[in-house]
Computed example of a mutant assay.
Amino acid sequence: MAGKIETRLAELKIELPAAAAPVANFVPCVQSGNLLFVSGQVTFWNGELRYVGKVGKEVSVEEAQQGARLCALNILAQVRAFLGDLDRVVRICQVQGFVNGVPEFKDHPKVVNGASDLFVEVFGDAGKHARFAVGSGSLPLGVSVEVAATLEVT
């Protein structure tokens, strides 16, 4: 039987991608006590890289928001693979957003809203979180956005 969060994802017609294997010497998730730290996720959809380029040049703010949403979907995929059940998520505690923008780009929070909005859509009040959204001179593979998160879990 599907859990509450899996049912919510189905109601929202949200499909999670496959959890990607790490490409370097790190693990996707580390649990310490009731905190789960999820490594930065980039804009992969089942092995296909999307939203590549600098925001404000090759990628629009709206496209980068979709990229941040995709990063959040990848976070949930990693959490499900690690915990086995998304119902073990008590709350999203913190979201860390990195935006690969042109030097004069100033709308980093608008981009990372793509991830924040998804977490609230899926988890309701438990999806509301502390956050930062910062600019970066570059990101791995040239992606426009990368998102990491810290969650409280059971």
Rank of each mutant, 00 (worst) to 15 (best):
M1R: 09
A2T: 13
I5E: 05
T7Y: 00
R8G: 01
L9W: 03
I14E: 04
I14V: 15
I14H: 01
L16Y: 06
A19P: 05
A20Y: 05
P22L: 06
P22W: 00
V23F: 07
V23Y: 03
F26S: 10
V30H: 04
S32A: 14
S32C: 14
S32K: 13
L36G: 03
F37P: 00
S39V: 02
V42F: 02
V42I: 14
T43E: 03
W45Y: 14
W45D: 11
N46L: 09
E48Q: 15
L49P: 03
V55Y: 02
E58M: 10
S60K: 06
S60C: 14
V61K: 06
E63N: 14
E63D: 15
A64E: 02
G67S: 03
A68N: 01
R69M: 11
C71R: 01
A72C: 05
A72E: 03
R80C: 12
R80Y: 10
A81Q: 15
D85V: 11
D85W: 05
L86H: 05
R88V: 09
V89C: 03
R91P: 08
I92W: 00
I92A: 09
V95M: 08
F98A: 08
V99P: 00
N100A: 07
N100Y: 04
G101K: 02
E104Q: 14
E104I: 13
F105K: 01
F105T: 06
K106S: 15
K106R: 14
H108N: 12
V112E: 01
N113L: 11
L118E: 03
L118H: 02
D125F: 11
D125C: 05
A126Y: 07
A126C: 11
A126R: 12
A133W: 02
V134P: 02
S136R: 10
L141E: 09
G142W: 03
V145F: 02
E146C: 13
A148Q: 00
A148D: 04
E152N: 06
